Computed example of a mutant assay.
Amino acid sequence: MNEQQNVQVVQEGYALFNQGNIPNLLKLYTEDVEFIVPGPSDIIPYAGVYRGLEQVADFFSKVHDAIVFDRFEPVDYIVQEDKVVVLGYSKARVRANDQPHEEEWAHAFVMREGKVSRFQIFTDTAATSQAFQARKAVAH
């Protein structure tokens, strides 16, 4: 596939994610897809390495259970051959403590035969950890 087709697959994936359509999103990944999500997994519930479609589906379930996105926006796409890097922004709340969390992020995709074979997140894990560790606000 050419670079533009690779970008289109990644863009479709973001659209499906924002729609909550995880079953169709999973169809954009290879059977042996690898997700790398940084951070301490004892604090950030979805941090870790996920291999294969079943584990990646589990990742999306953990994200859904942990946070609610108010905004999730890919902004810039950078592509070279089989690699697509996306710079973006998200604004969310941690479900457990209602803590708001905003971040700029980078996502790196490696494509193989028109599908995502590797996905890695680059973000401020300290800020994400802080949002998950904040105490739930108590109304006075």
Rank of each mutant, 00 (worst) to 15 (best):
V79Y: 03
D98E: 15
R118Q: 10
H101S: 13
D82L: 07
D124P: 01
Y46N: 02
Y46M: 02
Q120G: 03
A139F: 10
E113S: 01
I44V: 15
Q19Y: 15
V63M: 02
E102T: 06
F17K: 09
E113A: 06
H101D: 12
Y14Q: 06
H101Q: 10
E103W: 03
G20F: 03
M1K: 12
Q133G: 04
E34D: 14
E12Y: 08
N6Q: 09
V79A: 15
A134N: 03
T128K: 06
G13D: 00
N21Y: 03
E31R: 06
E73H: 12
K91E: 13
F69H: 07
V84F: 02
V56R: 00
E102W: 01
N24L: 10
I78E: 03
Y50T: 03
L25G: 02
I36M: 11
T123E: 04
I67M: 05
V138W: 10
Y14F: 13
D65Y: 11
V63T: 05
A134S: 12
P38S: 09
M111I: 05
F35Y: 05
R95Y: 10
S117P: 01
V10N: 00
L28R: 06
S129R: 03
G52S: 14
A96Q: 13
K27G: 07
K83Q: 03
F60L: 13
A57N: 08
V84G: 07
F69R: 03
S41V: 12
F35D: 03
P38M: 11
